[in-house]
Simulated assay, not measured.
Amino acid sequence: MKKAANCPKGKKRGEGDPARSERSPLETRFTRAMRRVLEGIEEAEHKLSRKTVHALRVSIRRSRSVAAGMRQVDPEGDWMELSREGRKLFRRLGALRDLQVMLGWLRALSEHGNPVRAALLKKIRALERAQLKRARRALERFDSKRWRHWAETLSAHLHDLGEGRNELERIARERFAEVTRLHRKALRRESIETWHDLRIAVKRFRYTIENFFPDRYADWGASLGHIQDLLGEVHDLDVLADFLPKAGSPWTPSERRRWLKRIEAERQKRLEEYRSLTGGRGGFWKAVAAGLAKPSP
Rank of each mutant, 00 (worst) to 15 (best):
A130H: 11
L121W: 09
R165S: 13
I200C: 06
L82A: 07
L224F: 14
I200H: 04
L187I: 08
F176A: 01
P75C: 06
E27G: 04
L139R: 11
R258I: 06
K294E: 10
K294Q: 13
L277C: 11
M34R: 12
K9L: 12
W147F: 05
S223Q: 14
R188W: 07
I124P: 04
V101R: 14
W259V: 04
L277D: 09
I124H: 07
E264T: 13
S63W: 01
D229T: 12
I200E: 01
W251Y: 09
K294T: 05
W259P: 07
R189D: 12
E27Q: 03
V239S: 10
K246E: 15
L121N: 05
D98R: 11
I227N: 03
P214W: 07
R189E: 14
R281T: 06
T31P: 10
E27K: 04
T153D: 13
L120N: 01
D215L: 10
M70S: 08
A95L: 15
L56M: 05
V58K: 14
R57I: 11
R87Q: 15
A135S: 05
K11G: 13
G10V: 02
H183G: 11
P8V: 04
K11T: 15
A218Y: 10
E152F: 06
S144K: 09
R57W: 12
F284T: 01
E152M: 11
R134T: 03
R129M: 14
A293M: 13
I227H: 02
E193D: 09
H112Y: 13
A201Y: 08
H159A: 13
L120F: 01
N6D: 15
I200Y: 03
K12P: 12
H46S: 12
E163L: 00
L161R: 07
K88L: 15
R71A: 02
H157T: 10
I209W: 01
L56N: 08
A218Q: 08
F176Q: 02
R148K: 12
Y207D: 05
F90Y: 15
